[in-house]
Amino acid sequence: MLQVVMFNLTNGLIVGAFYVLMALGLSMIINLSNVVNFAHGNFLALGGYFAFMLTPYIGFWGALLVSPLLTAVFGYAIEQLMIRHVYARNHIYSLLLTFGLGFIIQDGCRYFWGPSPLPLGIPDILSTPLTPELFFITWYRIFMVAVVIFAVSGLFAFLRFTRIGMRIRAGTLDLDTVSALGVNVAALRSYNFAVGSYLAGLAGVLAAGQIGLNPNMGDDLIMPSFIAIIVGGVGSLTGTLLGGLLIGVAAALTTVVYPAASEAVIYVIMAVVLLLRPRGLLGEEGMLS
């Protein structure tokens, strides 16, 4: 029994880590641009497929470094080409735009790489279990969690200590003032979108190493990421972090008791949070409400 709980707890932490990576990127884009990027799950898949293409040439480690960057460039291009044109309009347009974009990317992946799942090779050292007793924890799982912790700390440091990060934080609070102070808000939003895409791409490479690749691999992650943001509170990245881990672990622990309800529990948590604390756990009053 202890092993079952342990197994699901680690599972939950890992799934939660993915939710966090996805949700942080989404959350950053929502905070600064007021755009819910429906195609974020497809950005994740693209990150995975980029890694699949790069691995034969530069190996897994190289792909882990390069393919999130490629995803970021892709995101930047998409923002320049399409998304920046709808900032001034009703939110419904940005939702529809990214929704359609998601369709295009997904079918594009299917066209280029085929509809059947593909494996992403990972170094042998990572695929061995930790110890014979803890056979369910491979080094890859530890590695994933380490990368996520590293990436999230990196993100928070970036936002805290760099000039552009500070501007992003300031823009989240009051974009008009930031613009009046002479910051190029359009460029800021583009960089911000690229950072969000980078996180999706990174999640894509990590996920591909664990579960393999398929064109709709991001679909299962997008909804929990929304809920992580709602639970954590729109406008608060720390809240998103907390929300992602919370629903990941809660879903995994429910699997121990009653597997059929593992997805439902995410929605129950959301409903409870909305009832008791409508702005989310760490959401600020008046933020986007």
Binding site: N34, F226, I227, I230, E263, Y267, M270, P278, L288, S289
Partner: peptide
């Protein structure tokens, strides 16, 4: 549960509620 929310937040919560019904029918 929705009326106090606006904009993107309103849309996100409606999406999530929609998925609840989907999962019930699905499971």
């Amino acid at each position: 549960l929705l009326v106090r929310r606006r904009g993107v937040y309103f849309a996100m919560v409606t999406i999530a509620f929609g998925q609840v019904c989907f999962y019930i029918a699905y499971k």
